[in-house]
Design a binder for these strands. Structure first.
Lengths: 203, 203
DNA sequence: CGATAAGTGGACGGGAGCCTCCACTTACTG
DNA sequence: CAGTAAGTGGAGGCTCCCGTCCACTTATCG
């Protein structure tokens, strides 16, 4: 790839992050191109479909997830590590409201190596917190995507008007995840179902 | 209004419920018109804007809410009454996935008399459950719209593939609402904020 | 520096959906 | 049973966005 093309690719990804975050995932690609200062054809040449572009943007945000995970894993208290990680992920969602949906992509399964590593690390956090008796043992890893989908729905409505509302939801859920006298829970969706959901078009 | 016009109005509302539920709130109005067997002009004459149509459909579904409320209020156990109501509302959402967002409309404040009555009844359920020491006392009425927005987000992603996933979310939240050794919660959005959110275009 | 192929911008055709307009139809009234 | 105004359908103009095409530009390499 030619040097100028590579530069443009970066410009497009920056613009896409901003526009998607501000306008939602169905923002016109033309707007992204013009924000990036390139023609629409350039964008299409790099990213044949909207999904390709979304995937590239998501991949780029993965660094934020890595930082959150590292922080969680380094916390000596298993519950603090786990809950801190959840809070951090939810906050990333909240910071980029339009991207909220999309940010679930890297966090449930092995798309690429880095995503897989994050997922592994997350499983480790879960295991530790359960072992310490802090996390209820009917918690399943799929409960995180569940939380993220729910949070995305809340953010969708509240991000403009009550930008902190998500915190309350997350705290409620964290308290529910905490080990106590538990009521039985309905069984969660299977990992296969989750995968299917994630792979379906983001409409 | 002429008799035939009234009939058509009903046909349109039926069609709108079906199409919105199946295709989402941004389904083409033309499709609704054709499902109803009327011309597009007829639809526009009755409902000048998409919002008018949505509001009319929502108003019609209000009966479901009334039934759920009556059941909750007649339950001798305050916690069962409250939690049963929440579950019922969430289930209505789940049954009409596309409408999920919209169904929050009648349930937060006095748009009309019936909606106001439901809201009052809900407050009563909350008061009873708190008094019985079953519902945590930092629960606020705005936590229901919060739950519904979150649930809408989850349904959006899962309704096709894991149509029961919402149950798990609701149970987690109900368990969190339950009175226990509580952690402090972030403060909820104010009723004013909620109202503002509800009145903004449903995009 | 000149050849060349990768890269680029913006015009353009096409499709989808919104909403209006208007000539035609039909329920109601006296 | 006629007059009338409310009601109706669907064509058509409009806007927005998609994705392609092609003549022009420019980085790179020998």
């Amino acid at each position: 790839m030619r040097a100028d093309a590579a530069r443009n690719r970066e410009l497009i990804l920056d613009a896409a992050r901003n526009i998607f975050a501000a306008r939602g995932l169905d923002a016109p690609l033309e707007e992204i191109a013009s924000e990036a200062g390139v023609g629409i054809a350039t964008l299409y040449r790099r990213f044949a479909t909207r999904e390709d572009l979304l995937a590239a943007v998501a991949t780029r945000q993965i660094e934020l997830f890595e930082r959150a995970l590292a922080k969680g894993l380094s916390d000596p208290d298993p519950w603090e590590g786990f809950s801190g990680f959840i809070r951090a992920i939810a906050e990333i969602q909240a910071r980029l409201p339009g991207l909220a949906q999309m940010l679930m992509i890297p966090c449930h399964g092995p798309e690429d190596e880095r995503a897989a590593a994050i997922f592994q690390g997350y499983l480790e956090l879960v295991a530790r917190a359960k072992k310490a008796g802090a996390l209820r043992d009917d918690y399943v890893p799929e409960d995180l995507p569940m939380l993220l989908m729910a949070n995305a729905g809340l953010l969708r409505e509240t991000s403009r008007t009550a930008p902190k509302a998500w915190k309350r939801l997350v705290e409620y859920l964290l308290q529910a995840f905490r080990c106590r006298e538990q009521q039985p829970l309905p069984s969660p969706p299977t990992p296969t179902q989750i995968r299917k959901i994630m792979s379906q078009p983001t409409d």
